[in-house]
Each structure stands twice: as structure tokens, then as C-alpha cells.
Design a protein around this nucleic acid. Structure first.
Lengths: 342, 342
DNA sequence: CCGTGTTGGACAAAGGATTTTTCCGGCACG
DNA sequence: CGTGCCGGAAAAATCCTTTGTCCAACACGG
């Protein structure tokens, strides 16, 4: 059942039917209703491929996931972010196109998306320092919004980010308020922009209280349980071990907790932990009372918002870049307490 | 740069250029080479929208993610599965279309995908008992492959599944071999097909050794850390507590571990744990020596394989349904040991 | 009664490829 | 030398919708 058939059935031209369905003014209201009714009755759906060809719009948004090799980590926040973005797309009748590519193919993938007109815009995931995707997308003229920011990027671009610096500054400050002075940072990989900002927030907080930083208390690595465990185990074995940790994620935090308990220490009493909590649906930080004291910001909500920003950009290509900074919220849990006496 | 331009530049007709590029026999080999060279030189890419319109193929595969409400869990294996499937699609020049919809809209989503011709086939995620999607997709004639199986489904359909029953049977058997008799099952939600099969495997193993099952040792719930923790804590508080656990996932297992250690018991000595390990990239089960003894099966590899099965089905619509059963592998880690003396 | 303005709707082109049909020149064969 | 066949390439139809242009009919004012 296509437009022509439907028009034929109604003794109208395809033009009129198309206009009637798409709300153009130059069609009689009575005719429009007749068309609408027939369309519903015959379960008519315009062929999206043809619409795309005719309008030049793809009605689709691309998400490119670059993977360095078969075994590299897929970002654990990815599923929730996508779920959030997907809700926005569904509501707006956009499709989400996901491309999983090796990272050496990433640039070519963006170019192809553009050239073939598969998408109207893209979301940039996991920006790094001086991320090359930003100039690339600008050059090829594909609308985009970055989830995060890219330190070192020149010129304006649209982004939505959590205030990572402030969040970790606040987390560290909270521990300082509790009397902790040996505070460790178990950070993500520090070529990732968010991790750079978090370290900065951590150092800011220490500096503000004139607490010296110690390279031995700063770890940077993948945000896995094992990596968190190892980093914390090493630090706890120091001559002057930390009494508190700031951990980059729920998983890192769980690793840190294991190291603490493995060393015979009690979480929240002997050693405190604050995590950054992306509020992942499958990794809830407890329920009634959170396990971890945390700086929380829902990555799913971020997905919804970023997608909305992109759709807005697509609809208004000439509007300037938009920026949005979300604040993480301090959640008090059972993993923090006053610094132990020495 | 489109076909017409290219043909014009070459002083050929669009027909000939199209044929040359698509390897049709009725074009002179010299002409073909000339065309190929020009296409490469001018960076010609056929417009996929036009191809799709002309051929009727979408060159895309759909993944529909149904979510009951805003806060429902997004399956944590999702990201890795998608990464695996995405690799296959990239290799075969297929697109992946992701739809995130409320579950009451799921059926309509599949119908729309079909009617509008957005995709050539779909992957069915997380099948449940008597899953309605199987008859639905069969009815609307959209090729599909199920990741998992659906107990109660009538008639043949294509699927790829891990042998969940055998895996958990083996896990339970391993614990029985170690002398455990009070073995608990911390299962996923038992309207999910995989969880049904796992319970069956668990019961099979007990029955085979004539060990009575105990409803108090069987929990079923979401596969989160917190849920695992609670289930295990409750069981460990029983008058006759378990000396071993079979946990449905890495996260559940981490919750169980926390409950064990929280009860002052030692993992792998006082209480043993075997988990089912989907080998998620961000949740590696240790490295040199696994933290948990586990039944392992890579969900990412499953994604690759399922996608291949679907593309094959799309290419050969008349071939019968295909079934593939993967076996999980027993990985010995530090979380299991002989049953303690009583 | 005629010119003008509005309305409702039809016609045709455009969008970019594929596929079918048609055409033409050259060669082989009788 | 005429006919038939075939390879190579062009032309046209097809896929389905949107959209700019145009037309016919009608109402209305002068």
C-alpha cells in the first residue's frame, strides 16, 4: 500500500494525498479527513526510504563507537546513555544508527555517514584531550553534539557535560571536611577529558585546604573492579596509607572496597570512599540507603538531553552552538565517616 | 558526486557505470577498469538512500530494546552484545538500527520496521517464556534470530543460545564434587528464559546426586550487586546456611561476595561461589587468576555470531531456521574450595 | 458581463540509483 | 550479399514521496 495506490483508491492525485497527510493548507478539510480515514483504514505508512530520498533528510542520528581492538573495553555507561538518547529519538520519530568500528576507521565512518546521507547528525562519545573528531565533523559539516567536552578543542561546539571538576572537588572537599588528609584518587584513564577534569577538581580541593598532593595517591586506569582493587591495594600497603578514596565509578569503588576489606579495614569507619555514580540502571548504589557516598549524575538523563540538543541543532542549523553543564549531586551513603585518629 | 555526474565525466551512460561498478558481465573489462578508477579518484559512493529505494533492501538490521518504565534496568550485557553484533554489521556494510521503546509499543515498533522497510531483519533480545515476539515476527514476515530461546515457543525459529542448563548443572556439579551439599542459587528473574533453564540445570545437578533442593536456597531477582547481596545475606542468616552459591552474573557474584565477607566468612574457604560470567569487557573476572570460579561464555562473541546468522537468513530467506548452542567453559578461580567440615 | 482573486487540486519534476528494454554496429554464416 | 545473432551501450521505466508550478472553477466586485 503506497501513496499511489492510496491516491488511486481515493480518486485523487498522489500530490493531494501527500499534502493532506502532511497538513499542507491547500487541501480542503473534508478531503483531508477522507484521506486520513482511508490511510488509517488501509494501514498506510509512507515508505521511509522514499521520504529520505525525496526530502534529503535521513531522520536518523548516528552514534559511532570506536573500538581499538577486539578486546578493548566497551564503556559501561554506554548502555544507559543509549537508552536515554533512544527515548528521545523514539519520541521524535528519529532512528538511531549505531556504528561499531575499529578506531582507525572512525574518521572514514563519519565521512561516509555524511556523504551517503545516512544520518542528519551524530553524537560524539567519550571525548579526549584535543579530540580530532571535533575539527573533523566541523570540516565535513555534519551536525554534532559532544557528550562531554574536549580540553584543547578550538572554536565553539555544542556539548553537554557533567561538571566533573566541581563534582570531584566537592567529593574531595567532603572528605577533607571529615578530617581526612591522606586522600587517594582512583581515576579513569587520563587521556579522557572527564578524567583530566576530575583530577583537576581533586587537586583544586587539596590546594584550597593547603593539603599537599602525593603522586603515590593518584592512580589512573580503566574503570573496572579489578583496576580499582589493585590501585587501592597498592596504596593501602604504603607506609603512610590513605584514609579515604575518591573513586571514578561504581565499579572502581567496588574494587576499592574489596581492597579495604581485604586489608582487614572497615569501609566507612577505617577508610572512607566517595565514588562518582553514573546512576546506571544495573548498578544501583543501594536503595534505601546508598552503599557509597557518591557524586551522582544520571548518564541516562544525559543521554536524553544530549539527544534533544542534537535534534534541536538539526532543526535549526543556523543557531549557534549550545552548551549545557550539569551538576552532580552529593549523596550521603555508608562509605564515609570521620577520619580515624592516628 | 553521484552516478550521473560520474557517467557524464566518463562519457558513459549511468547504466554502464552502474553495471561496471556492480560487476555485471555485460560490460567491457577495459570500460570497467576505467570506471573503477574514476570512481575511486572522485571518491564516489553510491547514495545509500537511492540504493535502498531502488533495490528495496534496507541494508540494515534492527535491535529493539523494550523498557517497561523509565527506571527499569537496561540489560548490562547489552553493550557487549551490541559491540559484537556491530562488528559483524560493519564488516558486511550493514547498518544497525536501535529502537528504544516502551514495552507496550514494542509490537507496533516491529510492525513499523516491517511496513516502512527500515530494516531487513531483527535480533530478538532477552526472550521470555512463551515470548510473544516470536509469533509476531513470524506473522509479519520479518526475518529474525533470537539471542536465547523461548521455552514454550511453537514451531521452529532461528536462535543462538548458551547452554544455560548444562552450564549451571556443571557449576553445581563442581560444587557438589567439592563436597558442598547446601548450595544456593542466586538466579535472574525467572520469567526470563535463560533463568528458567539455569534453575533447571541447578535442580538437575542436585537430583543427580540425590541432594534435596530447598526453596530457601533459591532466589530469583534482578542481577544487580544489591540484589545478590540481599539474597545471600538472607540465606547466610538461615539456621542451616549454604556453604556455596551459584550466582547468575558477575554483579550478583560481587553482591554475594560482599554478603559473605560481611558475615565474617572467607570467600573460597568458608563459602564457595561459582558465577556465570558473560565475559563483559568492563567486568573482567580478574586477569592472571580469576576472582571467581565461573562458567564463562562471551556475550560479545555471541553478538558476532547471532548477527552473522541473521545476515545469512536475510541473504537466504528460504533456508530453514538455524540453531546454535554454545557451551560455557568452566574457569577455575579463587572463589571455590572444599566444603568446610561441620 | 468581465476581470481579478481565491481555492482545491492536478501535473510533472526531482531525488539517485537499479533494472528492463531498446538500439546499433559488427561479425559469422549460409 | 543478406540475414541473424551478439556484445556493448544508451534510453526508459521503476522505486515512492515531496514540492514547485500550473490550471480550472468559482466567487465577487465593478
Amino acid at each position: 500500500m503506497n501513496l499511489k495506490d492510496l491516491a488511486h483508491r481515493l480518486n485523487l492525485s498522489p500530490t493531494t494525498v501527500s499534502r493532506a497527510l502532511n497538513g499542507y493548507p491547500e487541501v480542503n478539510e473534508a478531503t483531508r479527513e477522507r484521506v486520513m480515514a482511508a490511510a488509517k483504514e488501509h494501514n498506510y505508512h509512507p515508505n521511509s526510504r522514499a521520504i529520505r530520498l525525496a526530502t534529503g533528510r535521513a531522520m536518523a542520528v548516528g552514534h559511532v563507537i570506536a573500538i581499538a581492538n577486539r578486546h578493548e573495553i566497551v564503556n559501561p555507561v554506554f548502555a544507559d546513555f543509549i537508552a536515554g538518547a533512544g527515548e528521545t529519538y523514539s519520541r521524535n520519530d528519529y532512528d538511531m544508527l549505531l556504528s561499531v568500528v575499529r578506531d582507525e576507521d572512525e574518521a572514514q565512518t563519519y565521512r561516509n555517514l555524511r556523504v551517503k546521507g545516512s544520518v542528519d547528525g551524530v553524537i560524539v562519545h567519550g571525548p579526549r584531550e584535543n579530540d580530532p573528531r571535533i575539527p573533523l565533523l566541523r570540516e565535513i559539516g555534519l551536525p554534532f553534539v559532544v557528550h562531554g567536552r574536549a580540553t584543547g578543542a578550538t572554536g565553539p561546539y555544542s556539548w553537554l557535560d557533567v561538571n566533573n571538576r566541581r563534582a570531584i572537588q566537592q567529593a574531595t572537599g567532603h572528605l577533607l571536611d571529615l578530617g581526612h588528609r591522606r586522600i587517594a584518587l582512583v581515576n579513569g584513564l587520563e587521556f579522557m577529558d572527564f578524567a583530566i577534569r576530575r583530577r583537576r577538581g581533586y587537586l583544586d580541593a587539596l590546594a584550597a585546604r593547603k593539603v599537599a598532593s602525593d603522586a603515590a595517591l593518584m592512580a589512573s586506569g580503566e574503570m573496572t573492579e579489578v583496576a580499582g582493587f589493585r590501585a587501592a591495594r597498592t596504596m593501602l600497603a604504603l607506609a603512610d596509607p590513605p584514609t579515604a578514596f575518591v573513586a571514578a565509578s561504581m565499579l572502581s569503588g567496588m574494587g576499592v572496597r574489596r581492597a579495604i576489606e581485604g586489608a582487614g579495614l572497615r569501609l566507612g569507619q577505617d577508610v572512607s570512599v566517595v565514588i562518582f555514580d553514573d546512576d546506571l540502571s544495573y548498578m544501583k548504589n543501594g536503595e534505601e540507603r546508598p552503599i557509597f557516598t557518591a557524586m551522582r549524575s544520571s548518564v541516562r538523563e544525559a543521554g536524553r538531553l544530549v539527544a534533544e540538543m542534537l535534534l534541536h541543532r538539526i532543526a535549526h542549523p543556523d543557531a549557534g552552538p549550545v552548551e549545557q553543564l550539569l551538576e552532580a549531586e552529593l549523596i550521603l551513603g555508608r562509605s564515609t565517616g570521620p577520619a580515624p585518629d592516628r
